[in-house]
Design a protein around this nucleic acid. Structure first.
Lengths: 342, 342
DNA sequence: GATTGGGACTTTACCGGTTGAGAAAGCGCT
DNA sequence: AGCGCTTTCTCAACCGGTAAAGTCCCAATC
């Protein structure tokens, strides 16, 4: 059916011009009369021609694909609302630039570093977004060595000299603890994310510091893998301690674990927020769907993704605004937090 | 830093052979001695060379990228566990073939059809996965006209002559209704997904049919946009009817809406499952995190994605197993369903 | 000893664009 | 008329690979 592929040559022939002229027209470059330009576009339309992006990028023009490799176990991603929302924010900006996203799940950072190298050398991408930084992240060196345009999603202390966009997690954690302390809580726990992640470390340190001052009667931290199951397990273990060693408030590192925590509390016969207060993180739609609704540190993840994508375009064109933080998550009180009973 | 890009020519020079020889070596084609092959690989390694995939695909070799365009409002995707899990299943197979996924969110099917055309003509993809079919879907014609290798995720009645992989939604819906009827429910409602979607229509029809026979005292269906808010609204409206007009069991089209329904019931002072039974769909981790846990029609979404990807490779290489259904979702009873209290 | 066959490479012609160096034509100016 | 300048296009050389056809050389066969 498909009459063998139509190329720039066919269009040129039909419009009665050379290949070069067609190229000029389609890249909106000067040097063609309005009439010719019009004739070329008409011919292209009639033949249903669209420039072959592969050939175009081989010939040196920019590549309109940006890469995103995510390094978390596949099964966990399914439920983590963060990523899809982040990706959809990224997409919203890419679409404006007729750009697509090349997505790949990888097993570890070494694999990701290798992937970036082959994507870049293979001219598959024009730039990339890097997420989930760890201490001494190998990707920093790779990106710099390759000269690959990237935006690093993470605190500058983790991302070396790369252009980065980050949330001020330390301040947010401190605010969360301060809020719970203000409600009267003196025994506060935190169910954190994967210990290897840089931002987890930052939050952990900030919690330590804040809790030392504000939760004199006890502070606990548990590391998890971000899954609901892990959140449930952590919550169960925290809440099963005898009363004086039991926290009256728990902060979670994402929404899923908070939801899991909520149901563990119910299962243990504890009332939320009377017996224990729970505070979620990210504030996806999920927080408004539970009963009681979940208080959360809320965060415009979609906007975050969009900001990152915009910054990446800045880096690619060489005139970006550079590194900057996005707004710090703000506390959104709902039904799952209250002063401790008595 | 990056010494100006290293190409196949540099490798050839270093190994003391021609470009052609390097190409043969890297594609594992016969016609080279072991010694030369080894020398070439060593040279490539020393120079840190990786073949330029763009050039390779221009030259006619196959493209190692598959496309996936999703046509749902960005904000909704964030929370829908289905997609991320589906994507992660697809990825798991693509990775084995060193293949990447080109992802794009589109606003409507016309846009998607156009995108597929330019991806294909631009040699950006070697094939594509099509999801969310609607009646008279324009993508069927486009894929056929272009000769684009695709796998359609949807019932053959919707996907025309395309190779398709589908779940038997009609049977699953019927099983759900039958289960609730067996528990003793006679007034059953269904909170369905987007009406425009083909599989929603199939489920709606199947529910109609099953309910006519098994829920003589009343059957209701509501269409939503799959969001938690819509699920909550629908549930509130169903449950606020006076007792004889109120369903004693509700089936949802995804997990999020079921979670929302659960909290609406709680907020209205209704006990689940005593006053109303709820049945979720897809069975993501979420169903095990609520209290009570959600009974669900459970579905290996990850495996579904993997199966689709495998089928696509079959289509691309021209020797696939062709269209086939994946296992029908099976009922997983948990805490949210029980016989109605008299 | 000439012929055949085939392994190991090299040559060369693309793939479908982009790009910079001209070339032809039109125009104003001296 | 001759000269320089634009404007509008054409030409040909890439970009970095692949693949078919061609070259060489040497062992096996008649």
């Amino acid at each position: 059916m498909t009459a063998s592929r139509v190329t720039i040559k066919d269009v040129a022939a039909r419009a009665g011009v050379s290949k070069g002229a067609v190229s000029l027209a389609f890249n909106h470059k000067p040097g063609l009369s309005e009439a010719t330009r019009e004739r070329i576009f008409r011919a292209a339309r009639e033949l249903g021609w669209a420039p072959n992006l592969t050939a175009r990028s081989l010939a040196g023009a920019r590549v309109d694909v940006v890469g995103l490799a995510i390094c978390r176990p596949a099964r966990m991603l399914g439920l983590e609302p963060f990523y899809m929302e982040f990706v959809s924010g990224v997409e919203s900006v890419l679409t404006e630039h007729s750009c697509s996203l090349l997505l790949r799940l990888v097993r570890n950072l070494q694999q990701e570093a290798g992937l970036l190298e082959s994507w870049w050398k293979g001219r598959q991408i024009g730039g990339s977004i890097l997420v989930d930084f760890q201490a001494d992240d190998p990707r920093v060196a790779v990106a710099e060595r390759l000269g690959l345009p990237v935006v690093a999603v993470g605190h500058p202390s983790l991302t070396g000299g790369l252009t980065s966009v980050w949330t001020d997690d330390a301040t947010a954690v401190t605010e969360a603890v301060r809020y719970l302390a203000a409600l009267g809580h003196r025994r506060i726990a935190r169910v954190g994310g994967a210990a290897a992640l840089g931002h987890t470390a930052i939050r952990t340190a900030a919690f330590d510091e804040a809790a030392r001052a504000l939760a004199p009667a006890g502070a606990w931290q548990v590391a998890t893998d971000f899954s609901g199951e892990a959140g449930a397990r952590a919550t169960r273990s925290l809440l099963s301690a005898a009363a004086p060693d039991r926290p009256t408030a728990i902060v979670y590192d994402n929404d899923i674990m908070a939801v899991a925590g909520l149901s563990v509390a119910a299962e243990m016969g504890l009332k939320v927020p009377d017996d224990v207060s729970l505070l979620a993180w990210d504030d996806s739609q999920l927080c408004r769907l539970t009963h009681p609704t979940l208080s959360a540190m809320s965060h415009d993840v979609h906007g975050f993704g969009a900001d990152v994508a915009r910054t990446l375009f800045g880096v690619i064109t060489g005139e970006g605004p550079g590194s900057h933080p996005v707004p710090t998550p703000v506390l959104t009180p709902r039904g799952s937090t209250a002063p401790p009973s008595r």
